[in-house]
Write a protein that binds this DNA or RNA. Sequence first.
DNA 1: TATCCGACTATCGTATGCAATTGATGGCGC
DNA 2: GCGCCATCAATTGCATACGATAGTCGGATA
Lengths: 263, 263
Amino acid sequence: MATLLYTILTSTADGAIEVMGHVLPTAFGLLGEATLSERSSRSEVVYRLLRQAILEQALKPGTKLSEDTIADHFKVSRTSVRGALVRLNAEGIVDLRANKGACVAEPTLEEARDIFSLRRMLEAEVIRRLVADLGTSGFKRLEQHVREEQAALSDHGPLSIRLAGEFHILLAELTGSQALTRFVREVVSRCSLILARFARLHSPECAVDEHIQIIRALRSKDIAAAEKIMLEHLDAVELRAELNPDKAEPDISEILKRYASES
Amino acid sequence: MATLLYTILTSTADGAIEVMGHVLPTAFGLLGEATLSERSSRSEVVYRLLRQAILEQALKPGTKLSEDTIADHFKVSRTSVRGALVRLNAEGIVDLRANKGACVAEPTLEEARDIFSLRRMLEAEVIRRLVADLGTSGFKRLEQHVREEQAALSDHGPLSIRLAGEFHILLAELTGSQALTRFVREVVSRCSLILARFARLHSPECAVDEHIQIIRALRSKDIAAAEKIMLEHLDAVELRAELNPDKAEPDISEILKRYASES
DNA sequence: TATCCGACTATCGTATGCAATTGATGGCGC
DNA sequence: GCGCCATCAATTGCATACGATAGTCGGATA
């Protein structure tokens, strides 16, 4: 396994997707249910790397994900790539159009609002549960994560983008609810896509402060306050997404829809 | 299992898509994003049939899903089967153990309670949204669905089991929120597994009545009342699941856990 | 010159073959 | 007789090959 990862890391060093090689190591804890100890199949590795690349916005919404290209870069067969793409499609971060190849999903404005709405609901629930029973070790993990976020701030790179999202996934994990974690993972992923698509630029500095506030609120054991902070944080994130309808038309079909009725 | 594969086998004998005509006509709007007009790939067909078989409890939790066996019965290659299994795994209704094959997921008691808890939250949200804006056509679809449920009651078969679950998915669809629909689909699917695993027998008669009550509550536009009815309905479903810890130990590991600490 | 049609290319969908891993069975030593 | 190890069968993981489909480019015709 280690050898496989090594070959992939080195092989990407001279490929086009080399970005992903750099940031991989720190990512491994959170990226999936699978821990380091389990052997990873090739398909699994491709899945993780692609997912990571998308969440770090190295692969932007709309980017074509040709099976051949990816297979060549990772030095694996298309079979393994297909498996990864199917999974990513099931998570909603990759669109899979029959006979026309896959591409990074492009959430529309409507979907974006939808996702944020659900995210508020889910994460409010996370907070409620954590206020009820978050132990010392949980706080330790949160604080450790925030420290990593702060450390990553300096490079202003993809790492901080990803860590910002993973803070929320970590919160969900700490509830101990697998299903809730799954759903939060999904909305957070989709939010990454939304930000990549609509936000002018990601400004993670604020986010870290807000994350610290969330931890503090959790410590206070005040449900209402904690929930309020979380919702405000999510509002801030949505604000950063600049989901105003008059900019960045999501889709040609969206535009043409208005003309179709007049013809 | 054998019976199911047999029915599938015989019905696929004269063409894969026609088969689904028999069992899926009412479901087609629900079962996936794909509409009838799009051509379905083999992998897609296998996916739908397997999913349906699992949700109708023809394939029970724990059943081994050998690639070869399925491929032979469906007269397709293992490749198509694998694609379907990966998708089902992503939805959480199939477990995929590396090098050891797939099997229908076996939710533990703990997971079961977790799922029900989330389901309550999600479906309460569905109700809140529907009370706000459910149009005439929406009610028509709901009533049509309930009629189908009633018609299916007579055979006491798998169809009524599936339709009962799909009522909830239909509710979610009517909110217009893709993400919410996704999540509801997932919890409903998992609940099917849970019922298959723990419930003594499925008694769908009650469910239909309860579904009618839900529609009535939605008509009344009384959020609190509608939400209450839905939650009561879900409580009833959970009750039917008989999630009492002292019966039907989910897992050998669960049992041995208690012994491990004493060794 | 503009439009339509047909061949071409690139890419995907599927099948098949081989390598790798797991679990089992039988033989061997104790 | 009992336990351990090696070999074997079964099944999955992966790669490659082939057929099918969609988009593109060039030529023929009006």
